[in-house]
Amino acid sequence: MHTTSSHYYGNVNPTLLEVVNPSAQRIAEFGCGTGAFARAVRQRCTGVVHYVGIELMADELTKARDALDVALVRNLDQTPNWSNDPELTAALVPDSFDHVIFGDVLEHLYEPHRVLTQAVTCLRPGGSALVCIPNVQHWSVMAQLIRGHWPQQDAGLFDRTHIRWFALTDMRQLLQQAGLVVEKIIPRVFKPENGQTLLQALLPAAQLLGVDPQQFIQYSQPLQYVLVGRKPLGSKASAL
């Protein structure tokens, strides 16, 4: 069985943290790990926060309980209809949360659209989904494909537990199809000098395919994107 170090579950994504509304009062985090992000959110927020954490790994969730008001162990791929789960429906009251958060989680799910759509029902009108998703258009993916090899790693773009892959257009569509208005897209670029030689060499291929060369380079540098999707004010859900 594949195991991952607890450091994987204890990271805090500073870009994701920055888009948390400091006045948020009700937050649900999917894939909360050991609670590191929940603790950081509580420090950021100015008032009392009701925090629901949902996590696949029971051992990791045990370490998070001090940071959570409600802690549930769930495999969301095995819970297709949340309305059939009394604990989930009690914890995730429709139209009541300021944020639902997915930090590097959706790519691990067989049905990310179904999960995100159900999570959106929990948002109050005007509330927002905060998501971070790896970018499959990153230059390092192209480099590996040219070499004819797909690495199997413990974390990052080549995490062996990834099931779905997204470029930026796919990420936008995922949020929009879940009923959200994409309000903010923040690229996370690390060591932008890396990969430049490869990208310049691939510019003729981009032009051959009718892709704007500068857009190609721009979209191939982020390792991840953080997106903020707002639930329209007129949108309400009566049930999960």
Rank of each mutant, 00 (worst) to 15 (best):
L76R: 13
A58I: 01
Q43R: 13
L76K: 11
R39F: 11
R65N: 12
F37T: 15
R65W: 04
I54N: 03
A71Y: 05
I54C: 06
A71D: 12
K63P: 05
A71Q: 09
L68W: 06
A67P: 09
L76T: 01
D77K: 06
T46F: 10
L56W: 15
D69K: 04
R42M: 09
A38T: 06
A67T: 06
L76A: 09
N75M: 07
S83T: 04
N81R: 09
E60I: 00
N75C: 06
A40Q: 02
G33C: 13
L61S: 14
Q43K: 10
W82S: 00
L56M: 10
F37K: 14
C45E: 07
A38S: 14
D85W: 12
V48D: 15
R65K: 15
D77N: 08
E60F: 05
V73P: 07
C32T: 09
W82Q: 04
E60W: 07
A64M: 06
A67G: 06
T46M: 05
A58F: 00
R39T: 12
N75Y: 06
R44H: 13
R44S: 13
R39A: 14
V70T: 14
P80W: 11
T62H: 02
D69V: 03
R74K: 05
V70S: 04
Y51I: 03
W82A: 02
T46A: 12
I54W: 12
Y51A: 09
V41N: 03
T62Y: 04
A64T: 08
M57C: 09
A40G: 00
W82G: 01
N84Y: 03
V73N: 13
V48T: 15
L56S: 08
A58C: 04
D77F: 09
C32Q: 05
C32L: 02
R42T: 10
L72V: 04
H50E: 04
V70M: 05
T79H: 08
T62N: 11
Q78V: 02
E55M: 02
G35M: 07
V41P: 05
K63Q: 15
L72R: 02
A36D: 14
T46S: 14
T34N: 06
G33K: 09
V52S: 01
T34A: 10
R65S: 12
A64S: 13
L76S: 02
L72Y: 02
R42Y: 03
L56C: 08
G53K: 02
Q78I: 00
V70W: 07
N84T: 11
Y51H: 11
K63M: 08
G53C: 03
K63Y: 05
C32M: 08
G47F: 03
Q43F: 01
G47E: 11
M57A: 12
V52I: 11
A67E: 15
R42H: 10
T79N: 04
T62M: 08
